[in-house]
Write a protein that binds this DNA or RNA. Structure first.
Lengths: 222, 222
DNA sequence: ACCTGAACACCGTTCAAGT
DNA sequence: ACCTGAACACCGTTCAAGT
């Protein structure tokens, strides 16, 4: 491996380390070893560990921005696409949701690159800017919460397969919790639940919009 | 201070330490000092630090369960109450949302205590068990995501008041982002946004329910 | 049963010194 | 400009030994 360490390569290596060892394993020393330098070398390229974490989050957000399709004719579809891309990128990395959510994004331009076209398109389609802003925030909050829970479940199932097994769960639950028990059994796959729950959130946005603010009928010029 | 350290007192002290110093400050050594013992003493009462964190989460969830009003006649109100209590308890502790969300709850009986009465009440009111389960999950996901973002913003504003100031933000944003800029200005208080966004989510649940499964008209016996 | 002292293998970070 | 060696003030955890 050639030795020219750059800021970008450090961040990239940190993301690989995250996938291999989880967030607890992302230490300055382990990262240095992976890059074949001594730990203090990293401080030439980054101010401190927090800056490293911020850069990791920014890199992931940049990928999200790149994968996002351009806005179409339906704000509902734009939001669904955003939600799916966000979830996919979080799931792609071990501890992704916890690590990247609520992160400080070092590049404000990036936020604009994601938001501005959506706001543009949606306000043109009849949403108020408030509605557009709310829509994005509600969907992001939902996705973050969903994936944190989902990933915790997935990862503990990996570590300890009995932990989320239905049989274990039922045994621990006792007799006076029939509905909680039944609810556990009707849980479908993560994928289906995500799509259904996302649909619920989008329905809520649609309900508000339709109730408050029917879009103006297009006028024909003749 | 009397010296009888118990598991409960350790967890309580850990929550105080969390509020004082944040999650980074919750170390075994600092906790021991606060309890006036040496660090290894804590390992008599807890298997390891993870167990401490699990117990902290469980304690908070127990408080949530205690504060929850009994289910009423309107599932929408039950959910709103749950969402508000959850948010309030997370906000009550520094780094609360990140620390307690997606946590391993050591006491399964506690989950039942929260869920079973709600499932009972809602299915009696005409929801399917699937709808009831989805409703709880969607609302919890939304609250977790909302408060993670909210708390990150609140706490960085405390640490560095320029960070989220509108003037700073506008300056960094450039000319080609008018809508993103305007959206920043129409942001109202956390409280209002939370209530409005919660309303959106609840509308979504109502929309699904009404569309799929109108509740049976009550029949009068005479 | 409950706690301490000493130790182990780690952390993030600084800084003078090297090239 | 970029990196190292040595050091500092920390971590979580174990374990023999004390009471």
């Amino acid at each position: 491996m050639p030795k020219g360490i750059t800021r970008e390569k450090v961040v990239e290596a940190a993301l690989e380390l995250l996938d291999d060892k989880g967030i607890e394993g992302v230490t300055v020393r382990a990262l240095a070893e992976r890059l074949d330098v001594r730990a203090p070398a990293l401080y030439w390229h980054l101010r401190n560990k927090q800056e490293l974490l911020d850069e990791m989050s920014t890199t992931v957000l940049r990928r999200i921005a790149d994968e996002l399709p351009p806005p179409g004719s339906d704000w509902r579809e734009d939001l669904a696409a955003y939600a799916r891309v966000l979830r996919a990128e979080y799931l792609r990395h071990r501890d992704g949701a916890r690590t990247f959510s609520g992160a400080r994004v070092s590049d404000p331009e990036l936020v604009v690159r994601v938001k501005e076209p959506l706001y543009q398109s949606w306000t043109k389609a009849g949403l108020t800017l408030q509605e557009a802003d709310d829509a994005l925030d509600v969907v992001v909050a939902f996705v973050v919460g969903f994936v944190i829970e989902e990933q915790e479940r997935l990862q503990s199932a990996d570590a300890d397969p009995t932990r989320y097994s239905l049989a274990e769960r039922d045994a621990g639950l006792g007799e006076h919790a029939p509905l909680t028990k039944d609810a556990g059994h009707l849980r479908d796959s993560s994928e289906e639940r995500f799509e259904r729950h996302l649909g619920i959130v989008l329905d809520g946005l649609a309900a508000r919009h339709v109730r408050r603010d029917p879009p103006p009928r297009p006028r024909r010029t003749r």
